[in-house]
């Protein structure tokens, strides 16, 4: 299905994240170039320790890079105050976590209402929207239950509803099926796919290459804290666009260092799935 690709929403420019550990420094992520266009389904793929969680934290503006710049909707996030950043995050990004991360003391409905409370939405509006969203994920009959009283798959659907509370532009899903069995994982992925078809940008972090290639338009492959390659869906198969870009860059005389300093342009024809 053809999707109209719109403006660039998130961009990481030459981003590195280093953690001091005793006397040494752990380079969790080095020279990452990453961009997401509105309406895309992007996967960040990598095995354990590849830096994908670090990448997700940076993309979700939960963390600041040691080097490099992150643009969220064209604004450099390092220039925003922590509170402004929280507000923007709450408004523009919806998070879905592997371990669901629902607040146990709040009911399903209250969990969905919470992001709206942080945005100052009125109680009536919050309640109405939460009910609407829970209907969307087919959990309106579980609204007054506590997270401890529903199944893992249901919790993840609540998390999806919560991520949509403020009608964000992008959904950031960190291993959304990681704690679920195949069947419930499929249901959750079905919801994400549906949302993407409705125009939401989805960024999914996963260690499962099959899952990445089944749903995503673009896959960023990370290994040992570095970007190994970027693949894009063309028709029914994925092509490695990293080499192409490197080649283009070389032809244009731009120095390339292991592909990490080469700007990767997705191009307008990449929204085909």
């Amino acid at each position: 299905m053809a999707k109209e690709v719109k403006k660039e929403f998130i961009r990481l420019r030459n981003v590195s994240k280093h953690y001091p550990m005793g006397d040494s420094v752990v380079k969790a992520l080095s020279h990452l170039e990453f961009k997401v266009y509105e309406g895309e389904f992007v996967a960040i793929m990598g095995p354990s320790g590849s830096g994908k969680s670090t990448a997700m934290n940076l993309v979700g503006s939960l963390d600041m890079p040691t080097f490099g710049t992150i643009y969220l909707d064209d604004a450099d996030i390092s220039e925003l105050s922590e509170s402004d950043l929280a507000q923007i995050r709450g408004k523009k990004i919806g998070f879905i976590f592997q371990s669901f991360n629902l607040i146990p003391n709040l009911t399903v409905k209250e969990n969905v209402m919470l992001p709206m409370m942080f945005q100052g939405t009125s109680v009536e509006e919050r309640a109405g929207r939460a009910e609407e969203l829970l209907k969307l994920v087919e959990l309106h009959d579980r609204m007054d239950h506590y997270p401890g009283e529903i199944s893992g798959g249901q919790m993840q659907r609540v998390a999806i509803a919560r991520s949509l509370a403020n009608d964000p532009e992008v959904i950031l899903a960190d291993e959304p099926t990681g704690n679920l069995d195949t069947k419930t994982g499929d249901i959750v992925m079905h919801f994400l796919e549906k949302l993407n078809k409705q125009g939401k940008t989805i960024i999914m972090v996963t260690h499962d290459p099959d899952l990445a290639e089944e749903y995503a338009d673009v896959v960023y492959w990370l290994l040992d804290g570095k970007l190994e390659k970027v693949t894009k869906r063309v028709g029914s198969r994925f092509i490695d666009v990293t080499k192409k870009k490197k080649k283009e860059a070389a032809l244009n005389g731009v120095p390339s260092k292991k592909g990490t300093k080469v700007p990767i342009k997705s191009g307008k024809s990449n929204g085909v799935k």
């Binding site: 509170s83 998070f95 992001p115 403020n166």
Partner: peptide, 16 residues
Amino acid sequence: KKEIGIMKAIGGTNWQ
């Protein structure tokens, strides 16, 4: 602590 992290992720400011 985790709950605080969740609240921050979903848009809770320090003040809130």
